[in-house]
């Protein structure tokens, strides 16, 4: 008997509910914390980004039309699936991100809890952010929040697993779909997380996860007319990239969010959901009320 050869996994892109290779045929080496090769990963091209946006566009309306409660169920299912793969993810985080055993386990547990946290918010944020507004005319005036549409996200190389999960959960919680370039340093973890999403009844295309280089994709994401909001995670303060993104985003009034540092604790909040929501206010005519004041 010859010696057993280890079976190395090919990590692909997660687009439209399918794991597909990059159309460009390019790859990059995923390294572990010690600099040894861990895997070959797909290096997403702008065409992959475009395909992901097409998939996200197809999926978004259906995702938003689901009941809030059902979206909550699906996010909770993600938590269940992540919990059952805790050992695998902790192992990957140790290997790829170089976390200690205790820290890696705690990171996976936190990510799981965060998914439960946002699962809970799915059918509650509307009650918090919508309002009935007093107006000085005979109108019933109320505001509700609606998803913006497709959220683009780029994570700088060193963004952590927890931050990535929180961003994803807060964006899709309110009915958005998203296209995310995962942090390069944890590409393997990110694509494994895509597998968790994949068997959590999440409709294909709601979350699309790419791996690759931020500088190759950021202009195409910022300039893409179909993407309605963009989050940039871990942008350095002195970076010239910010102005470029702002300029391109202005073309279709893209909303921009820059999330920096270890923001996990800060963004574990319903206000993170609100960042990707649009307020819709309706003026509903009613009969004359005394003194034109709202009488409710």
């Amino acid at each position: 008997m010859s010696e057993r050869v280890e079976v190395l996994k090919t990590y692909k892109l997660y687009i439209g509910g399918k794991f597909s290779r990059t159309e460009s045929g390019r790859y990059f080496k995923g390294l572990d914390a010690k600099g040894n090769q861990l895997a070959n990963l797909c290096r997403a091209s702008r065409k992959d980004l475009r395909n992901a946006v097409v998939a996200a566009d197809k999926a978004q309306s259906g995702w938003w039309e689901r009941s809030d409660y059902n979206r909550g169920q699906i996010l909770y299912r993600m938590a269940e699936n992540l919990e059952s793969r805790k050992a695998e993810f902790a192992g990957l985080l140790q290997k790829e991100a170089g976390l200690s055993q205790a820290k890696s386990v705690s990171a996976v547990e936190k990510a799981t809890d965060d998914l439960v946290y946002f699962a809970g918010w799915c059918d509650k944020y509307q009650a918090v952010f919508s309002s009935v507004n007093p107006v000085a005319s005979s109108h019933f005036n109320f505001s509700i929040v609606e998803p913006m549409g497709i959220i683009g996200a780029i994570c700088e190389d060193e963004i952590g697993f927890n931050e990535m999960v929180i961003l994803m959960a807060s964006a899709i919680c309110g009915g958005n779909s998203m296209v995310m370039l995962a942090p390069k340093q944890i590409s393997v973890v990110a694509q494994s997380f895509a597998e968790v999403l994949h068997h959590s009844d999440l409709p294909g295309g709601v979350v699309n996860i790419l791996s690759g280089y931020p500088d190759e994709l950021l202009e195409h994401m910022a300039g893409h007319m179909e993407i309605k909001a963009m989050a940039y995670l871990g942008l350095k303060e002195d970076s010239k990239v910010k102005a470029k993104i702002q300029e391109l985003a202005a073309e279709n009034m893209k909303r921009l969010s820059f999330w920096n540092g270890n923001f996990a604790d800060q963004k574990r909040s319903p206000f993170a959901i609100e960042e990707f929501m649009e307020v819709k206010t309706s003026w509903h005519p009613i009969e004359q009320i005394g003194g034109a004041a709202a009488a409710y």
Binding site: R50, V53, H220, G223, H224, M225, E226, E251
Partner: peptide, 10 residues
Amino acid sequence: ATGYYQSADY
């Protein structure tokens, strides 16, 4: 013409 992907919305 622009170099960026467009949306049918416009």
